[in-house]
């Protein structure tokens, strides 16, 4: 176990803490994404803080209440709120209202497709709107826990209690159901479209190989997995939920079946956020005690980005080029690191 308790301790590790541009965001942050050359910090309520390279903060009001879900396709960020609204924010910092739930139900989940389609959910109903086609909806047996578009084709994974439904909004074909007992709260496709992984309410992941629906149980976490990130090329899936980063291997055709995960960067704190570098085998890791590390996947070498002592890290993202790392904690303390 390693700890970064004091200055003398951090002498033993390479530190780039002095290169971080600190940001006082003034609000709890739930996510960060890059929009063009600005970092967009999504607040827990109402606002997004857009921060440029010079650290200038401009605030945009996006919701009239709590912000419950966020997705981005690089061109825009789409958010759902407890005001029943689905709102898009573009690179210019302009907002567009995409949908309003007629009953003002919470918009719990949102997903974006590279071709411009957007999916969202309220209660048990998932909705899809693509550029050309009209809006379609699909109901699952219990409240939607997570949404994800497949990387190829228009196929939407809808996670719910006791499994995931794969829905093809543009086809007459029946939806396909992947069953597994329990509540599935997050869902991701592997970038090669071969695997589907869910984060469950219990501290575990579950996966399916899509070709034959073979199950993959990924258990052993002390806490619920809230953050998942695919490494460059989709070779591995990095996850939060333990006191080190848990990385499941997905490079072979069997995925992680019968394999042990790699474990990196153990601290005496829970990993709260993971973000893999878009091009290199590096990932950024945020912890419940506020620490942020950069870790090289090949040998586990660590670089200190932020010392511990603050609130849990709640947002972490690289820009698409991989030259900027943005982060924020639950208490609104954030930063930008240029590499």
């Amino acid at each position: 176990m390693k700890q970064f308790e004091s200055d003398d301790n951090s002498a033993s590790i390479i530190s780039v803490t002095d290169k971080v541009r600190p940001l006082a965001l003034g609000m709890p942050v739930i996510a960060v994404h890059f929009l063009g050359d600005r970092a967009a910090f999504i607040g827990a309520e109402e606002n997004v803080a857009l921060v440029d390279g010079a650290g200038e903060i401009s605030t945009v009001v996006v919701h009239g209440g709590g912000i419950l879900c966020v997705a981005t396709d690089g061109a825009r960020i789409v958010m759902g709120g407890d005001d029943g609204k689905l709102v898009a924010l573009d690179k210019k910092g302009e907002t567009a209202l995409l949908a309003t739930d007629p009953k003002r139900r919470w918009i719990d989940n949102v997903a974006l497709h590279p071709d411009g389609a957007v999916a969202w959910s309220a209660g048990k109903t998932a909705f899809v709107r693509s550029g050309k086609a009209e809006e379609k909806s699909f109901e699952v047996p219990s409240t939607v826990g997570g949404l994800a578009f497949a990387p190829k084709g228009v196929r939407l994974a809808v996670a719910h209690y006791n499994g995931v439904t794969l829905w093809f909004p543009n086809m007459a074909a029946n939806a396909e159901v992947l069953e597994w007992a329990g509540s599935h709260l997050g869902v991701v496709f592997s970038p090669d479209n071969k695997f589907l992984v869910t984060a469950m309410h219990e501290p575990a992941l579950h996966g399916w190989r899509l070709a034959d629906h073979r199950h993959m149980r990924m258990t052993g976490y002390p806490g619920r997995v809230r953050s998942m990130s695919w490494s460059a090329g989709g070779k591995a899936l990095a996850t939060s939920g333990a006191d080190s980063v848990i990385m499941w291997p997905f490079a072979s055709k069997d995925g992680p079946m019968g394999k042990e995960p790699a474990m990196f960067a153990p601290l005496q704190a829970r990993v709260s956020m993971v973000a893999c570098h878009p091009k290199q085998d590096i990932l950024a890791v945020g912890y419940s005690d506020g620490t942020i590390l950069m870790v090289r996947m090949t040998d586990g070498a660590e670089i200190l980005v932020r010392k511990n002592g603050g609130a849990a890290v709640s947002a972490l993202a690289w820009n698409p080029k991989g030259t900027l790392l943005a982060f924020a904690a639950e208490d609104g303390d954030g930063g930008l690191l240029e590499l």
């Binding site: 309520e45 709590g66 407890d82 919470w106 719990d108 219990s142 209690y161 329990g182 509540s183 309410h201």
Partner: peptide, 26 residues
């Protein structure tokens, strides 16, 4: 929702987990 621990009386309100999490943002 039943928890995956083999005990049928071990149930939770899944909607409550989700709603409380959302409310904590406010």
């Amino acid at each position: 929702f039943e928890m995956n621990n083999g005990c049928v009386c071990c149930t939770v309100r899944g909607d409550l987990v989700r709603i409380l999490e959302g409310l904590m943002k406010r």
